[in-house]
């Protein structure tokens, strides 16, 4: 028995998240982006998003191609727990694809097509000085080399430190603090790569923590973020770890930045909420 993709893994993921309210929440409307994407390099064998309290669920595919699960909870509730559970087959890392030069990427047709992945968002806006200091010196005519160099530079600019930033933190703020998590590494890389004309997008998903994971053993995983840049084809880079994006990575959503891939968002009325904390249990099955 093998997996679909040579060198790929079969992974079982249980992603738990939610909120607890300081009282009762009413009329809660939510959208979850917790379903792994079906891709040429990734097969989804089973997937489900559940909510407690129970609710009718619908789904649609958003503009970015991500499957969104929507649900509404009418009855007053004290907490909301959402679980995404999936089994996915991944593939091993690919060699960089695409042979456009950085000059070719500046072509009007490319710029027009990928404008959304070139324009800064509030989270990825950097002043020119930052670009001149950190991105321009790394720019060669080879986007693969440039992207790898920028990713490496980001690892030298930021120290990985959980809990130091929030979901709203921008690339600039993370840079000022010199610390961050995968989201900040990705935002800063995106900001720098876009500033030198390489279309870049944000990817959210999961990462199995162990390179030599044992089959059947459940690891405490994490929600992860990395990037993809365009060089005629899309190529993935993990600026947080520097490791190749391959069998351990599961893609859920892509977009311009975190705002387009928010795992769980919603509105309600009632008492203030605090996050329940996120746990991701990830098991290698094959």
């Amino acid at each position: 028995m093998s997996t679909f993709f040579s060198g790929g893994w079969r992974l079982h993921i249980v992603h738990d998240t939610g909120f607890v309210y300081d009282g009762l929440a009413h009329g809660s409307y939510n959208e979850a982006r917790l379903t792994p994407a079906s891709l040429p390099t990734q097969a989804v064998l089973s997937t489900e998003v559940r909510a407690v309290p129970g609710a009718e669920r619908w789904s649609y595919t958003d503009y970015w191609g991500t499957k969104v699960t929507t649900f509404q909870i009418d009855s007053p509730h004290e907490s909301l727990r959402v679980t995404g559970e999936s089994t996915v087959e991944t593939s091993s890392a690919r060699t960089p694809q695409g042979n456009l030069s950085c000059t070719a990427l500046l072509d009007e047709a490319v710029v027009d097509r990928f404008y959304e992945y070139l324009a800064p968002t509030p989270r990825t806006l950097l002043p020119e000085e930052v670009r001149d200091a950190y991105a321009i010196p790394l720019l060669s005519d080879d986007p693969h080399a440039s992207a790898a160099a920028v990713s490496e530079r980001v690892r030298s600019l930021l120290t990985y430190a959980p809990g130091t930033t929030e979901v709203q933190t921008s690339a600039q703020e993370a840079l000022d603090r010199g610390v961050g998590v995968c989201q900040d590494f990705s935002h800063l890389s995106i900001a720098l790569l876009r500033s030198i004309g390489i279309p870049t997008r944000y990817v959210s998903g999961y990462l199995h923590p162990h390179e030599e994971a044992k089959v059947g053993e459940t690891a405490r995983g994490e929600s992860h973020a990395w990037i993809e840049y365009y060089a005629g084809s899309w190529n993935a880079l993990d600026p947080t770890s520097g490791a190749a994006v391959g069998a351990r990575h599961v893609v859920v959503a892509r977009g311009r930045d975190y705002a387009d891939v928010t795992p769980l968002s919603g509105i309600y009325h009632g008492a203030p909420a605090s996050g329940l904390g996120v746990t991701v249990a990830i098991t290698r099955l094959r």
Partner: peptide
């Protein structure tokens, strides 16, 4: 209209009025 090059796609992707939630 964009694919045929009649008008730039960027006209909508750069517009704050382009409502991505309305797609679909």
């Amino acid at each position: 209209v964009f694919n045929e090059g009649i008008i730039p796609r960027r006209l909508i992707t750069s517009s704050p009025e382009f409502n991505r939630a309305a797609v679909g």
